[in-house]
């Protein structure tokens, strides 16, 4: 094994991670689907009928991209953080560290699997949404681009959290204290134009705003910020996470003593 890239290793990690997901498919798929359905029932059907259209889109339909993003972000982070934290917790990480694999291959395997799960889940949630509200996708390719980029970025973030965490409580700390609030306040349930100043300006510092805005534009052609800005910010966060992961492997942070 002296090839430039250990493709077998990437495949092995990827398959191992996917099989872990399929083993717990009920828990992995059902719980996000059920919670999304609850959002649609409460905000879409019950409260949504009382809400005005936003940018010409019925409130129930307006919610779909935001809810997909909410699930995408939380599931990417939790899948990827658990994926790498668990081998650290059980000690099986010794094998990954002593194998002839580069950090790029380890990341491709773990983050690739976590992002795949999130993208699949995104589709499942979109399919679930169509049962409750009409859904239109004006720019399917852009929708897919935002979906994949966001899944990758937040899976990378999850990977970083999984390496940083030295206990189960830390594993849920960042998703609970940071990701969920940012997503709720990032326009999942409303257009940021509905906010009074200074909140409207302050919200622009929330990176999730750009993800949701770009994603929603790919559905209905309406957005809070320009699509180019959304894409640029998404790529920026992706690059930032990649740089942090590269640094982690270069220094062996929390992996090697």
């Amino acid at each position: 094994m002296t090839a430039a890239m250990n493709v077998q290793a990437v495949k092995s990690i990827y398959r191992f991670e996917m099989s872990r997901w399929f083993r717990t498919v009920g828990q992995s798929v059902l719980s996000p689907v059920i919670s999304t359905s609850l959002y649609f029932i409460v905000f879409g059907a019950a409260i949504g009928s009382l809400m005005q259209d936003i940018g010409g889109v019925a409130y129930g339909s307006f919610l779909v991209p935001g809810l997909v993003m909410l699930m995408l972000l939380t599931q990417s982070v939790s899948n990827a953080s658990f994926g790498i934290y668990f081998p650290k917790f059980t000690g099986t990480i010794y094998e990954i560290l002593s194998a002839p694999v580069s950090f790029v291959e380890i990341v491709l395997g773990y983050v690739g699997a976590a992002a795949t799960k999130s993208v699949l889940l995104g589709f499942i949630i979109m399919a679930t949404a169509t049962l409750f509200v009409p859904v239109e996708i004006q720019h399917p390719l852009w929708m897919l681009t935002f979906l994949v980029l966001t899944a990758l970025t937040f899976s990378l973030l999850g990977f970083i959290i999984g390496i940083w965490a030295d206990g189960f409580e830390k594993l849920s700390l960042v998703p609970t204290l940071i990701i969920t609030p940012l997503t709720f306040l990032g326009g999942s349930f409303y257009s940021i134009e509905m906010l009074p100043e200074p909140w409207q300006t302050l919200t622009l510092f929330n990176p999730v705003v750009y993800l949701i805005s770009g994603f929603r534009w790919s559905f209905y052609g309406i957005s809070d910020v320009g699509v180019g800005v959304s894409l640029g910010m998404t790529l920026f966060f992706l690059g930032l996470c990649l740089a942090v992961v590269a640094r982690i492997f270069a220094t062996g942070y929390r992996l090697k003593s």
């Binding site: 094994m1 290793a9 495949k11 398959r15 872990r20 059980t90 099986t92 990954i96 194998a99 002839p100």
Partner: peptide, 18 residues
Amino acid sequence: DAFESVWKTISFSRGLWG
């Protein structure tokens, strides 16, 4: 790994070594 089968766990190691 607690939950995987013995066969898969051993095969995983071989794959990891490329």
